[in-house]
Design a protein around this nucleic acid. Structure first.
Lengths: 218, 218
DNA sequence: GGAGGCTAGTGGACAGCGTCCACTTTTTGT
DNA sequence: ACAAAAAGTGGACGCTGTCCACTAGCCTCC
């Protein structure tokens, strides 16, 4: 009975011979795929351990419970959102502070946010589904600038002031209404009452929302 | 053994002697209380039946399953939101189409929406937690005007045009960006990253958001 | 270089949940 | 008045998150 086992996921002989941190990372990756397909409720601990090829209780060596695993998955999802936004704004040419480029960069941020919510609805809702009392300290030791959605939005608004497009007296705190408008459209069209709207209608609503923001900032 | 039973919830003798529709209404009411305290995830079928004093399976005589019960609870929560908004706008005096009153009524609608989200976070998120493939036909035979949040918002915006405050060429489709801004602030400050902000900060953010909307409409 | 402790995995169990099936009791329609 | 339909009961199943006791491999320290 040496080669009779199917060894579905991992060879039984390697049970205790995994690379260090492999199980933890695997659980988060598995949870991320579950979240991508079905949102935060779909990230179920036992299913994630099954994907990694480990017994359910093994997860408890790496997370205090399901909520802590979900928190890690949420952080990963938020990271994907931040990456998409950064990529979107990087595609806009022109030097920082340029009066032409600055409004385009703000719009690109909003467009990337809405595009992510449209293309990855499960991950988008998961990014904001952080369980209570689990604020992620995952940010780490402040490496580089603030890559969070809010941080990137602030950078774009600061550039708008720098470029002279937005009056400095209107800058303070304006990120929250702007964020709200984009976020609200994302959730209304994603999981809210507008979720059944066809794609072209949805894109039009997104454009209207971005234009609405532009109108208030002008 | 006639009077020895404690008869905790309902007398055992009355097991099958309930008023017609009482169990169904009771289940929705119980679910609404669960949702008020803990959001949509807290509306668990067995607990609702326990509150009504009935065995879990009895719920299946009135709902196809947990999701259908949740859908009914969502509709009830949405009804409470609509009631609050209607009450808020009714407090603003002045005739319809009055250039003074119209903007105040729009603001009252937004303020009531945000106030409901702040005071009843569980019900607010539940109102928008309608399970997929369970669009509520609960609206019934169109009694009276559209009392839904979107319907009330449209009424207010129409009045704004009537009053000459909002240009007619800007009216079409403007309800969605406005709704988005208010809804976004509600969820960001309710369950989102801003949920730990103190009450006064939160109120300030809400005011900023309503002002932002006014700026874009002017 | 061997003993002991630490880490990470296993195995088995429990309660709670949604849901299904078979059965009984009450209400209703003719 | 009697049969049919509606409403509630009882018991079961599989799935979930979580706890406890146990063990296999690694690392260190004398």
């Amino acid at each position: 009975m040496t080669a009779s086992r199917p060894a579905a996921q991992a060879s039984p002989a390697d049970r205790h011979r995994r690379p260090r941190g492999s199980v933890r990372d695997g659980l988060v990756a598995a949870g991320l795929e579950l979240a991508r397909a079905g949102g935060p409720d779909a990230v179920v601990l036992r299913e994630a351990t099954r994907m990694v090829g480990v017994v359910p209780n093994a997860a408890y060596r790496h997370f205090a419970g399901r909520d802590e695993l979900l928190a890690a998955v949420c952080a990963a999802a938020m990271g994907e959102l931040a990456d998409r936004m950064a990529a979107g704004v990087a595609r806009v040419p022109g030097p920082r502070g340029d009066p032409q480029a600055a409004p385009l960069r703000l719009r690109a941020i909003g467009a990337a946010y809405l595009e992510f919510a449209r293309e990855e609805p499960g991950l988008f809702v998961t990014a904001y589904a952080l369980p209570e009392q689990h604020a992620y300290t995952a940010a780490g030791p402040e490496r580089g600038p603030d890559r969070s959605p809010l941080g990137q939005l602030r950078t774009a608004l600061d550039e708008l002031v720098e470029a002279g497009v937005l009056g400095r007296q209107h800058r303070d705190g304006i990120e929250y209404p702007v964020w709200s408008a984009v976020h609200g459209m994302a959730v209304l069209a994603g999981q809210g009452p507008l979720r059944d709207a066809p794609e072209d209608v949805r894109r039009h609503l997104e454009d209207r929302t971005l234009a609405f923001i532009g109108a208030s900032l002008a």
